[in-house]
Each structure stands twice: as C-alpha cells, then as structure tokens.
C-alpha cells in the first residue's frame, strides 16, 4: 500500500465516504459528503465499484503529493486544479505519477470539491464509516480535519482509460437555487397564506452555514409556534424557529430536535445548497405527492443515463 501525503490542508478538508448509517438511535449523525452528487460522480469517473473514501475540500487550498502512480479526479466546486503547476480539468480522471503534486486553489463558484482516487483512501473506520464528523470526533484521522504531514493510504493503479463528464452536465453553483420542498412533519401548522409566503420569499444564505445546516435570511415567516416534543430530524429537513427564518439541516445535523418543520428539501437540492455561500439566493417551491413520484423517476433516469466519455487510450 502506498499513500498520498498532505502538504497543505487548506481551509477545511475532511475525509468522507457515503456517511455513517445505522447509529442514529445512539445519537450519531450521518456525516458524509455535503454534495453527494459531485461525490458520486467522482466514483463513476474512477470506475470505483462502491462508494469510496474521498477528500471533501471546502473553500480550497489543499495540496498533496503522490508517493505512487495512480488515477485521481476532482469534482464539485470550480477550484483551479494543477498537477506540478500544470492546469488540469475537473470532472475528468487523470493519471498521476510518483512525486507529482496536486494543488487546489480557491473556489470561484461553489464551495466544496471532492478529490478521489482509484479504489479510495484506505483508512480504519469508526462505526462502519470513514466520514469525519468534527463535533463527534469520529471518522477521518482521529476524528479531525486533515493536517499537513498526514499519510493517506492508496493503492497503486494504472488505468488505460480516462473518463470525463461532458461539460454540459457540470452542475452550476452560482445560479439562484430553486429548492423543492416536500410538505411533511408539521406541514399543517402552517396555513395557506404562510405556505404561500414560504414559497414566494426571496431568501439568501446567511452568515451561518456549515455541514450541520444552512440558516437563511429574508422576510421572517411569523406563525403561532407550539410546543413540540423532540423528534428525529431527516436529511434536508427545514425547521422554522420562532424567529421565522428557515434552517435547512444537512449531513452533520443533530439527530433530535424540537423546532417545527413545514417539510423537507429534495435530497438533490439539499446537496446543491451545500455548494452555496453567504448571500446566494434561494427560493422554495412546494413538491406535491404526484410530482414527487415523477421527480424520483427523473432522478433514476439521471443516474442511469449520465454519459461518461473516455477520451484517451494508451
């Protein structure tokens, strides 16, 4: 087994696999890639057969050196990528040789990148997962963000084929986000007018956003709050505290909470939200049960038909 070595850790780089499941009843959050769509495409580009352990690079600034020949790719936010100073394309797998240095600049659009290698980084797991949850000190290396000097074990690989996602499929993270909201939980605590306000307000990402959740700012939605016993919070749940400003809860959310929730964001949209930064515009729209079924069929088609090109043969 060989390795990558971290030269510069960047602003916040953490190891993430698909997430930690089956332990919510003990209070463990799911963790995992904040933008699972970009994460999953990285595994497709490397032909990884199962969800791998990748580096989630938030904001940017990561630099690593390879101690072996292998294949890697970067997907997600538009961070300038270089190998030994030479510019390389995102959404594209690349061969890399021993002593090559991979560097990521800072995101021009979007917030988080996924740096993945063929076969994934091989590290011991906590509760069946490598996903780093800083608050719980679990996953990654000693439950913490990456540090310079750390070794990240990888296996040596050579792939005759390199793959790329055609540019028209690259997600766009600088456009206003239309967030589909499935009514659920306390949906009936909000009357027609309040739903209308929720789905017509121009919200923006506030200064409070992280892997736990995104707090939005905009015209507060005032409603008669009632006491609610703490209950399980699902991925993408939108809670409305008494101040009337929605919080969309993401991967590192607390497992239980007691704020009323009008509904839950579509997973694909919650992942796109995790690529947004302060000030970016967000709007909700209501997803009715009939539309939900159509949407899910569309999602299955998206993943089934996602075209991958192979560009070089050697």
């Amino acid at each position: 087994m060989s390795a990558f070595v971290v030269l510069k850790a960047g602003v916040l780089s953490t190891l993430q696999d698909q997430g930690r499941f089956g332990y919510a009843h003990l209070g463990l959050t799911q963790g995992g890639p904040a933008d699972y769509v970009s994460y999953r495409i990285a595994d497709l580009l490397l032909q990884n057969q199962s969800p791998s352990c990748q580096i989630e690079v938030s904001v940017g600034g990561l630099s690593v050196v390879a101690l072996t020949d292998t294949v890697f790719c970067v997907t997600g936010a538009a961070m300038p990528l270089t190998v030994n100073g030479q510019s390389k394309s995102l959404w594209h797998s690349h061969r890399i040789k021993k002593d090559d240095v991979i560097e990521l600049g800072f995101a021009k659009s979007g917030l988080r990148c996924y740096l993945a290698v063929a076969g994934g980084f091989k590290l011991p797991k906590d509760f069946g997962s490598n996903s780093t949850v800083l608050r719980e000190k679990l996953g990654g290396i000693a439950g913490a963000a990456l540090q310079p000097g750390q070794f990240l074990p990888v296996r040596s690989t050579y792939s005759p084929l390199l793959w790329a996602l055609p540019e028209k499929y690259w997600p766009e993270f600088s456009t206003p986000l239309e967030l589909g909201l499935i009514p659920g939980y306390q949906q009936h605590w909000f009357d027609e007018a309040q739903w209308q306000q929720l789905c017509s307000t121009d919200y923006q990402v506030s200064a409070l956003y992280d892997r736990m959740g995104y707090r939005l700012q905009g015209e507060p939605l005032l409603y008669q709050s009632r006491a609610l016993l703490s209950e399980g919070i699902s991925y993408g749940a939108v809670q409305l505290p008494p101040d009337g400003l929605p919080i969309v809860l993401l991967n590192d959310r607390q497992t239980l909470g007691g704020y009323p929730k009008p509904g839950v964001a579509l997973a694909h949209h919650a992942a796109a939200l995790a690529q947004r930064q302060q000030g970016q515009p967000i709007r909700f729209y209501k997803v009715l049960p009939k539309q939900l079924e159509a949407y899910q069929r569309e999602q299955q088609r998206y993943w089934a038909e996602l075209p991958m090109d192979f560009r070089s043969l050697l």
Binding site: G184, Y185, L229, S234, V264, A267, Y295
Partner: peptide, 17 residues
Amino acid sequence: LKLAGENALILYLPAEI
C-alpha cells in the same frame, strides 16, 4: 404517518411523555 423527505417517514403517537 407523515412524509419526512423523499427517503423518510415519521410516525406519530399522541404528543405526550
């Protein structure tokens, strides 16, 4: 039973401890 997302449901009993 209420929806709690495209992959989740929440089941409620009377709201009491």
